[in-house]
């Protein structure tokens, strides 16, 4: 009589353990990099709208962090706001409101940086998302993807982005790109090759912010 009972308890415990272990595997982690270099700092309002979209779309249990890309961005100081939403929807809604307020304060006082350290920001983002143990990890880069490194900044080494999705947003064309479009295309190709070499599962470029925002996040079912 005791043996079947033990088996039932064991199975139930396993099921519960499985359920607990599975919870983070289904969560979505998003790390958004906002380029604040040069004229791109003026695009902060657009970035704010995208962050609002992310806040509206992410679910309880998901993680979101917004960081600025500056001259040297491999630092936690560049993280403007970060949150892992509570499992309870009501608490998650309150957290989203607080997050929105933080972003609003940030966008009102953006200071342009001299250089753009995208690589450092990517490494920082990967580190943060790995810590969250999210099932689906997405790094959103709101930038023209033109990396400019200051003197003494070393970034020419291979980076690790295993299992990450990289989404490049609002990759605006520079004046030089208009003169020679190959520069723009080569820039995108270079970044795609770099992140794929680093182990990224997906590389997405979204320039139509009005109609194609759905491409930023992948639905849970499609990611297996």
């Amino acid at each position: 009589m005791k043996k079947p009972l033990n088996i039932v308890i064991l199975l139930f415990s396993l099921m519960l353990l499985g359920a607990c272990g599975d919870s983070r595997m289904h969560s979505h982690g998003v790390y958004m990099l906002v380029d604040t270099s040069g004229t791109y700092a003026q695009e902060a309002n657009k970035a704010s709208k995208i962050i609002n979209y992310l806040l509206a779309t992410l679910n309880p249990g998901d993680s979101l962090a917004v960081a600025k890309v500056e001259s040297r961005s491999f630092t936690e100081k560049d993280i403007v706001a970060k949150v892992t939403f509570d499992k309870r929807p009501s608490q998650a809604t309150s957290q989203k409101r607080a997050f929105k307020d933080k972003i609003q304060t940030f966008t009102q006082a953006v200071k342009p940086s001299a250089y753009t350290d995208i690589t450092g920001a990517l490494i920082q983002g990967a580190e943060y998302l790995n810590e969250t143990k999210s099932g689906i990890k997405t790094i959103v880069i709101f930038s023209d993807m033109q990396e400019e490194l200051g003197k003494g900044t070393v970034r020419d080494f291979p980076i690790e982005l295993d299992g990450f999705r990289i989404v490049a947003l609002n990759v605006s064309k520079l004046r030089t790109d208009n003169a020679d479009p190959r520069l723009y295309l080569n820039r995108l190709a270079h970044w795609e090759a770099r992140v794929r070499k680093a182990g990224a599962t997906e590389w997405v470029v979204v320039n139509d912010l009005e109609n194609n925002l759905e491409s930023i996040l992948v639905t849970r079912g499609t990611n297996g």
Binding site: M15, G18, A19, C20, D22, S23, M25, H26, S27, N59, P60, G61, D62, K87, R88, P89, S90, A92, R220, G221, G224
Partner: peptide
């Protein structure tokens, strides 16, 4: 279903697509 997520959490999954 929605208010139950407030009680048992909205991000827990029993299987790949089955929410607790």
């Amino acid at each position: 279903a929605l208010p139950m997520s407030e009680m048992v959490g909205a991000s827990d999954y029993l299987t790949n697509s089955l929410k607790t």
